[in-house]
Design a protein around this nucleic acid. Structure first.
Lengths: 149, 149
DNA sequence: TGACAATGATTGCCTAGGCAACAATAATGC
DNA sequence: GCATTATTGTTGCCTAGGCAATCATTGTCA
């Protein structure tokens, strides 16, 4: 069972790594440009968005989901908290865990963040039909599912 | 002209950023696991592969192509050179530029590196037909082309 | 030709993630 | 109940990329 790629005549520019890496870097760049007025980085925006939709308000869950280092997460939350974008509240049920809550400031910024993400994503998808975009998303999910050997 | 995404009901998990970011991180992880015996990181492997296929043996060109910081590139080349994976040779034509050459050690490692990349990419593409894989690559290239507004 | 801009590479400084160690708390098993 | 193990969050240390400044060299253009 051979695959799509072959060792002979393998061109790095055609490789998944190169392509995905570039797309991601351009996406991040565009996203941060769009978020510049808020002075938020991509990961920071994602954390705030995830808190907003109420998924796992625990830092540990973010780390698992985003494959983010716990230490780095602590420091990122420090920065966000210091700038008034969120609050840490010790959970009464599990006194190890910390409940993350948005502040008025971050709630106010939320629409703008969503708009930024949607704008950038749609820009990258220009020329794609609805069906093609849907197919692309599906492909990416299948790649993710294939990650664990 | 609205796009694929809409602000209302926008789910970060469906967003390009989240998906591409994850795929890239998993790819890198798998690639580095495969390259562990050589102790090479993903970017390092890419640089060596690019030198191997003879594309732009100048560091500056790599920086442009890989969107890599020149300072970081200098230091990465330092590490690779110190470990005997490449040689710096001042170009006689343009005395600012530095010509990068592989050593016997890196040439010997080359087949293994290509195999690692091909193996990982094909693993992520399992379940994809040839046509689907080709389509995915095409989509990724289109995303890249859409990067510049 | 000569001033000025552009390019290639390097360095120092800053920021931020990865890893390991740790304390506090919770869950598990005897 | 109690010892053991796992989990959560934090901190220190190390590594590495981003940015700005710099030097040498090349290109441009009046």
């Amino acid at each position: 069972m051979s695959g799509y790629y072959d060792v002979r005549g393998f061109d790095p520019h055609e490789g998944l790594g190169y392509l995905v890496g570039h797309v991601r870097s351009r996406l991040l760049q565009a996203l941060e440009a769009e978020l510049a007025p808020l002075e938020l980085s991509g990961p920071q925006a994602i954390v705030i968005l995830k808190i907003a939709i109420g998924e796992g308000a625990h830092a540990a869950e973010f780390c698992r989901d985003l494959q983010y280092d716990p230490g780095a997460m602590t420091r990122m939350l420090d920065r966000l908290e210091k700038r008034g974008y969120l609050r840490r509240v010790r959970s009464p049920r599990d006194r190890r865990a910390i409940h993350l809550e948005l502040t008025d400031k971050s709630r106010a910024a939320l629409p703008r963040m969503k708009t930024a993400a949607v704008t950038v994503f749609n820009r990258f998808l220009r020329g794609f039909s609805q069906a093609e975009a849907k197919q692309l998303i599906g492909y990416l999910k299948r790649l993710m599912a294939n990650a664990n050997p």
